[in-house]
């Protein structure tokens, strides 16, 4: 029998990093399916524009940066949570606690309930299920949490990969049949603005945003986001992890774009502008009736894979970044894993019943979630690019970035405040898009962190890109 400490360490690694034994195949499956859920299939197709494929094409670059820049850094620093890297690189642990808390709150109050809520709603409408959205969401949550709690990251990654093969295959069949239904002609009867890849200023992705803001959103999402990045940390070696992430990047650029935009365009040609009903309507039109059970399984699996993956990341953040540091260092990880998982599951189902009653709350919360992306990325950029930074200066940058973005989202971008347009339009800058604002927030957050570090804490930060030594000895 293993001594207690050794047993604890191996429990940790099994639950949070699948014993460090995931092959590239399962890393690729887990990274791909953690991201792909019904909100993407329904929401992106609901835009009914080819342009939306840029989110996936740009994701290819985000994944390559994860593979070749971030994965070696996380492995070198022996990280289980990505926030451990921040503690190692800054002079102080406060930034790790703050960012970990933000991820944890975002997962608990927004991400977990949103995944089962949107999945349950789609299943209820499409398959005419008589049960309430909350009941369907509770069943999905029970199964999803079951995988994360009983099997840890290994079960999550294996589920993601096996389900992923079925989901991607069936989604490609939908694309093939949809194209066949319109005689492989997407261009006639579809306006040019829905087929162009060069986004105009009033489109969801203006072309200029691809060259800066979009890139940083992708870096945040794939490389400094515990929900995704944890899956790339579970391989035995850096090389195996890189192989898995590159495979996920190839899937992202070759397979995902058609499945999230083509059914939407076909829906426009067949039914006109039908918003978020597009995917369901195309599926009902092109898939034969006898496949509806199979399609329901695909949708349920897409929800389960994302829910269980985010659940596993949530349990990891609480256990490693909070419970073991502040409550009980030698806690029994298996018991804690069960308790935290069950609490998170109950909380997410309870929130679904609230969200189902007032849909605008979840939209507001999702906007709030978006507020955190660039401020969090700023803390990573300052940590990786500079030396001699105080953790409290990074927290100041984060708070400032959050405030600037909130001011934009809830005041400057509210058309009612400025006669039907954004504030930027009133000063002759109508092209300023929220992706541009994200870039502005990122640059401001880094600058505020550097200035606070210099003026308040008297530290001279030094640019030191690529050097992996810790910042100061005082951490």
């Amino acid at each position: 029998m293993l001594p207690r400490a050794a047993s604890n360490a191996s429990d940790d690694k099994e639950i949070f990093l699948a014993g460090g034994g995931l092959s590239w195949f399962f890393v690729a499956g887990a990274v791909t399916l953690t991201n792909l859920s019904t909100d993407q299939l329904v929401g992106m197709n609901g835009n009914q524009m080819l342009l939306l494929a840029w989110w996936e094409l740009a994701g290819f670059i985000g994944l390559l940066l994860l593979a070749f820049v971030f994965v070696p850094i996380y492995y070198k620093n022996n990280c289980t949570t990505i926030t451990q890297l921040l503690e190692k690189r800054y002079d102080g642990a406060s930034i790790r606690t703050v960012i970990s808390a933000l991820f944890l709150l975002g997962n608990l109050f927004i991400y977990l309930p949103a995944v089962i809520y949107s999945g349950a709603l789609f299943m209820q409408i499409l398959f005419g299920i008589e049960a309430s959205v909350t009941t369907i969401a509770a069943v999905l949550a029970l199964f999803g949490a079951g995988f994360a709690i009983l099997g840890g990251l290994r079960a999550v990654a294996v589920l993601d990969t096996y389900a992923g093969i079925g989901i991607l295959a069936l989604a490609l069949v939908v694309v093939f049949l949809a194209m066949q239904a319109i005689g492989w002609d997407m261009t006639t009867w579809v306006p040019e603005e829905r087929l162009t890849m060069i986004g105009s200023l009033d489109s969801p992705i203006p072309f200029h945003t691809l060259f800066a803001g979009m890139l940083f959103i992708q870096i945040f999402y794939w490389s400094t986001n515990q929900n995704i990045t944890q899956k790339a940390l579970a391989a035995p070696t850096v090389k195996e992890a890189q192989k898995g992430v590159v495979a996920a990047a190839i899937i992202r650029v070759l397979i995902v774009p058609p499945i999230v935009v083509i059914p939407g365009i076909v829906a426009f040609k067949l039914f006109g502008d039908v918003d978020d009903r597009a995917y369901g309507m195309v599926v009902a039109e092109v898939l034969p009736d006898w496949t509806s059970g199979m399609f329901a399984a695909m949708i349920a699996a897409a929800v389960l894979t994302t829910y269980s993956a985010v659940m596993n990341a949530t349990i990891t953040l609480w256990s490693v970044d909070f419970h073991r540091r502040f409550i009980k260092p030698d806690v029994d990880m298996r018991k804690l894993n069960r308790t935290v998982g069950i609490i998170a599951m109950i909380a997410s189902v309870a929130l679904v019943s609230i969200y189902a009653g007032a849909e605008s709350i979840i939209n507001l919360l999702q906007e709030l979630n978006g507020l955190l992306f660039m401020p969090i990325l700023s803390a990573f950029i300052a940590a990786l690019l500079f030396r001699n930074m105080d953790a409290r200066a990074a927290v100041a940058g984060l708070v400032c970035g959050f405030s600037i973005y909130a001011f934009h989202t809830f005041y400057l971008y509210v058309p009612e405040n400025f006669g039907g347009v954004s504030w930027y339009a009133t000063i002759g800058l109508p092209w300023v898009h929220y992706i541009d604002v994200m870039l502005f927030v990122l640059v401001s957050s880094v600058l505020v962190a550097l200035l606070t570090n210099l003026i308040v804490f008297g530290n001279h930060a030094r640019l030191a890109f690529g050097k992996c030594a810790p910042q100061l000895n005082g951490a």
Binding site: A18, G293, A297, A300
Partner: peptide
């Protein structure tokens, strides 16, 4: 959904669960 489709749905989900647990148990046994 017709009963046969519910059965297909349940069968596929069960198969997915069984395949996943087989792999997890095999990896733990190594």
């Amino acid at each position: 959904m017709a009963h046969i489709q519910v059965a297909v749905f349940a069968g596929l989900m069960l198969a997915l669960t069984a395949l996943t647990w087989r792999k997890v148990v095999a990896a733990r046994g190594q």
